[in-house]
Write a protein that binds this DNA or RNA. Structure first.
Length: 427
RNA sequence: GGGGGGUUUCCCGAGCGGUCAAAGGGGUCAGACUGUAAAUCUGAUGGCAGCGCCUUCGCAGGUUCGAAUCCUGCACCCCCCA
């Protein structure tokens, strides 16, 4: 009979428990623990894929455990073969250092680093790995890894059986590094549990084995299922590339929009996995999505919650206001400041006031504003009814912009199709 | 070492001397329908000027009034026999 644990129950209800190394884990979580999740520093910003890990850590912290966020500065140099089909591109040391700095900053939005018993800790495994000599590592760590066991891990097996690239010795060794991370964190911070996506299972258990052999310590691991969309693809990829957490790479508006556009069938899952809304509220939203999906209530709430966590209240406000304007009617009677604020992430182009007076063709304006690659493309858009000035459709190919087309003191808002906007600033 | 096949527009893939800016499919973009959805349907899809010009069919030359289509050389890829 295990002692029920509120955190574990909640995780279970949310569907976040995929595999567990020990059935005693709910019981174990009844005393404060130090737990860790690893993050890849493949870019100077985290993207949506990392949200889940951050939120899980946050849940643990709020339940009274101490979260350790490990940035893989060292392991990032090697490349985790798990879930990858090809050998990974190695990052330069400098590149990695920059990435780690950027990621650290973002972590602070999720975890509480203020002093206290649950104070979050941020570590970079490069800090301890760099001091390890190759010989020491082989003697102290490598010795404890039977190759036949390593070979039987899914991540390795998948790569070895492939006729193509196979796996390099470097990536093959990846799991030793991650295993040692776990052991190190146990020694340093008394960290006793590692959390990760289901693709991390092999790496987590490798760490547990190593700790037992090396120090006779019992460690634990939990994995969550990979958050996939109902069509089986990963979250966070759009036509424009990944959805990032940094406002510079993905504007709050775009971030918000990503979640607004989540499929009905994926909404409940996202709410459970990623938000901190409670059970009643999520069930209520689920019901509303089922009853009147056209109202997008679940998506709206999801977008709002996540945008708030990542970009704050100001970000939410900006995103919602932008949404209102972008998907509303005609644009007019607005101030420059409002428009520029909302459309700050959009391509824009300065033009001379004189040019507007001389007559600027709509087609040319589309090219200038960067929403059409060529005049031919712009012309097509107009002919097909996909061109808008201040959200008002214009179908005349020979249309010329004038002062009357200003939406505010000095801005004209051009739009192509449903969602692609560009600005023209008159000066 | 010998023999054969290939390299086409974003991708796949037809074309085999003029009617080819190049079939078809995918993708992408736009429109209709919708819920800023899915599915579906329609249109567009080298550039510039509007029925004309310019740049494209691995690379470089050549034969022709005219080549993606023929010839020569080069590069890369694949297959078969040793």
């Amino acid at each position: 009979m295990t002692t029920p644990n509120p955190l574990y129950d909640d995780l279970q209800w949310r569907g976040l428990i995929y595999q567990s190394t020990d059935e005693q884990i709910p019981h174990i979580l009844n005393t404060p623990r130090t737990v860790y999740v690893g993050f890849d520093p493949t870019a100077d910003s985290l993207h949506i894929g990392s949200l889940l890990g951050l939120q899980v850590l946050r849940r643990f912290q709020q339940a009274g455990h101490r979260p350790v966020a490990l940035v893989g500065g060292a392991t990032g140099m090697i490349g985790d073969p798990s879930g990858k089909s090809d050998e990974r591109q190695l990052l330069s040391v400098d590149r990695l250092r920059e990435n780690v700095v950027g990621i650290e900053r973002q972590m602070r939005q999720f975890l509480d680093f203020d002093e206290g018993p649950c104070q979050a800790v941020l570590v970079n495994n490069f800090d301890w790995m760099r001091r390890f000599s190759f010989l020491d590592f082989l003697r102290d760590i490598g010795k404890n890894f039977p190759v036949n066991v390593m070979m039987s891990k899914e991540s390795v097996k998948n790569r070895i059986s492939r006729d193509g690239g196979g796996i390099s010795y470097t990536e093959f060794s990846y799991m030793l590094l991650q295993a040692y991370d776990f052991v190190h964190l146990q020694q340093e911070f008394d960290c006793s549990m590692q959390l990760g996506g289901s693709d991390q299972w092999g790496n987590i258990t490798a760490g547990i084995d190593l700790a037992r052999r090396l120090h006779g310590v019992q460690l634990y691991g939990l994995t969550w299922p990979l958050l996939l969309k109902s069509d089986g693809t990963k979250h966070g990829k759009t036509e424009g590339g990944s959805v990032w957490l940094s406002a510079e790479r993905t504007s709050p508006y775009k971030f918000y929009q990503y979640w607004i556009n989540v499929d009905d069938s994926d909404t409940a899952n996202c709410l459970k996995f990623l938000t901190e809304l409670d059970r009643e509220e999520i069930q209520d939203l689920e019901k509303q999505v089922a009853e009147s999906p056209e109202r997008n209530i679940g998506q709206r709430r999801l977008a709002e919650e996540l945008t708030r966590i990542v970009h704050g209240d100001a970000g939410v406000k900006l995103a919602q206001k932008a949404t209102e304007i972008m998907f509303g009617g005609e644009i007019g009677d607005l101030s420059d400041a409002t428009l520029l604020d909302i459309f700050s992430q959009l391509p824009s182009h300065q033009i001379d006031a004189q040019k507007l007076n001389d007559g600027l063709s709509l087609v040319e304006a589309f090219v200038l504003a960067g929403i059409a690659k060529s005049k031919g493309e712009a012309r097509r858009a107009v002919e097909q009814g996909g061109a808008y000035v201040n959200n008002r459709r214009v179908q005349d190919v020979n249309y010329e912009l004038t002062q009357n087309d200003l939406a505010s003191e000095s801005v004209v808002v051009l739009r192509r199709g449903k969602k692609s906007y560009g600005l023209l600033r008159i000066s």
